[in-house]
Design a protein around this nucleic acid. Structure first.
Lengths: 218, 218, 218, 218
DNA sequence: CATGAATGAGGTTTCATTCAT
DNA sequence: TATGAATGAAACCTCATTCAT
């Protein structure tokens, strides 16, 4: 990864033909696999290509450099998760805050845990150059969606400030990561799902009361 | 980092002399600095040594290899944080759960944010080989301390299961990271501190009710 | 030679120690040798290093990239030649044009032919990126020296325009190259020397008459 | 250019059909263009093909490898020039030496400067493997033609030795190259033409007197 | 003990060439 | 016949690590 110049990280050509699509898919999958048994340190373009059953040259026909490959893999995953969150927000339009939170949390956990191996692998590259930027962008996207949805809630008056949403998503990500690192058995994942709903709901309620001083008492 | 064998990652010699201690300190600090302006990609032993005002050879007298250096830096930080949490637990022995939570959260945030640059830098290497292992171990240490402290609380009957503690620490770490990535201005940090207390307390309370159904006395 | 950015082509470190100086010398010489039996196409940094009895790494401690190495070798030679021409101009200050021309031509041929192998080799890289620029600069330096010397000649009134000097040096270079390609036996070199003096002197005289119309006849 | 075996560099098929001829022409032209804006370093078969509006496969149907392509382009140019010189010699049969020289020089300059871009581009590959051989062969062809023509001159008695012809052509090539590198504006080219005639004529005359000592008779 | 030149395995990337479509 | 995806050898260059000074 010698590449420093702000070269284009865009994929080189879109795989229009069926075979190409399969190759690209294989390369992405191989990237995950290589990452999972060797870490970022052992991730070389040659190894990825070999694992994908292709040659390095082929890899470089679809990605201009190693960074671009990692970007693509990371982005796909983040986009899946953000997309799921956005969809949940959409579906929960007009629902009370507690329910919105529930749907969002469940969508987040489900999307993240659909492929625990992928999620696990991505932590290994997320720290890489500009990985953080991608992550931040994806996170922002989710947060915006949630903030919008919150404004449409019947109890929107109690809607928490943006900061709380940030904390909430940070907490979700952190707790999920912790479970992932502990093995992420299906049972644990179910439990995580349940507890994160609890955590977010109680936090939102507590935070809301905090912000709206008049606690409507008699 | 060609190193594969599970070589000893222990520092080579303990810096008994004053000069050695200063050198070691300079090298650790240089590591952070290099990390902060170049990322993990640009972190080379030569560069670190140069920044520390030493030569590569000197660096290799204190650390058997690059990994060992990164380990040492990471461990020191994690140990600081775990230590702070442990101390807070110690001090809160016999206090009610809510107060314990408050002390622990504040200790965590304070320790983590004492040097935001260091925390930021460490995310860049935490993903490296066996970085996760270190992190997991440190996290475990904190959790154990908290679980022990909880059992000494007057309302220990309501003490949550271990899983909740895991979630709590995961959430704390995630939210903190999120703030760190957003710039971590002092004002934000203060807010984070406050909100995390809120989050943990309300989560613990909600979770407790959940687990111990018998609380609804007559 | 992937390098495109206008990176510094300056040597990386000046060889202050004796051993370093020897290494640098060996690398330069090896470059010539590799060039001579394989052409520019076969010139790889690895091969050069091997021939110099060093490792690639060592080569790259003295030259930041392949271009820089070729530059250094080319420049040294061109500088030798330009230097010789300048010295000849200096020594011929105040002498008539014909004698100046003689000295310059002889200095040029002698300098160029001191190491016919080097001269031969350099044609192979002179065409490379920015080689032409170097050559042009060196040529200019020689031409300026000659023009200056000409103005100090007793028959300076007949001094030819700058264009003629350009042509003269171009012709010298071309004829020399032709002899070099034909083998450059000592006998041929002697003949070349003699003929180039003749060529330049007669050209200057003819050209001068051309420019200064009044041929001072009785 | 991995090719080592002295494989045939002959074009693969003669373009008998009109379409083929057009393709070949386009490829040759594209080679020049690519060479002119990227240098030899950037000359890849794919790029040439793309610029010619064809595919690599097509290129390889006309040339067995990259070398063959470069050969063909270089040879065509050299052949043009040699041909022009030969024609001039033919036309000047029986004319005095001075006039022969004039015609030859003018033919050379005109042929070389008909497409300054092509001439410029070719310097970039002439150094390549066996480029020198081609150049030498072409030069020899011109020289032979001139020597033959000289023997038919009325003042053939004064005809210079072969070496002088070699020097003459070398000088012409060198001076022309120098002008080319300086930009080769039409005005400069005209001047070059004029001066080279002068240079060759005066050299021939001076050299002739030199060789035939018997001229000083009463 | 400190230094920093030397080493060389190995990583990234290019590009001439082939061949199935 | 034309195409252009695939191939993989080989080039350039870096950097962890050692060791003579």
């Amino acid at each position: 990864m010698r590449q420093d110049t702000a070269a284009s990280f865009e994929p080189r050509k879109s795989p229009v033909q069926a075979r190409s699509a399969a190759t690209v898919e294989a390369i992405q999958e191989a990237t995950i696999q290589v990452l999972l048994n060797g870490g970022a340190e052992r991730l070389t373009t040659t190894r990825v290509a070999a694992r994908a059953g292709a040659s390095v040259g082929t890899l470089y026909q679809y990605y201009p450099n190693k960074q671009a490959l990692l970007f693509a893999v990371l982005e796909r995953h983040l986009s899946n998760v953000s997309g799921a969150v956005e969809a949940a927000c959409e579906h929960s339009r007009g629902k009370p805050l507690a329910q919105l939170a529930k749907h969002v949390v469940e969508a987040f956990v489900d999307a993240k845990m659909r492929r625990t191996d992928v999620s696990q692998a991505l932590y290994l590259i997320a720290a890489g150059i500009d990985g953080p930027a991608l992550v931040r962008r994806a996170s922002l996207r989710s947060r915006k969606a949630m903030e919008t949805a919150m404004r449409s809630a019947p109890d929107a008056a109690n809607a928490p400030e943006a900061f709380m949403v940030q904390i909430m998503f940070g907490a979700m990500a952190g707790a999920t990561k912790s479970v992932l690192e502990a093995g992420a058995s299906p049972a644990m994942v179910r439990k995580l799902r349940h507890h994160l709903v609890l955590l977010c709901q109680s936090y939102l309620e507590a935070g809301t009361h905090l912000t709206s001083p008049a606690r409507q008492g008699p």
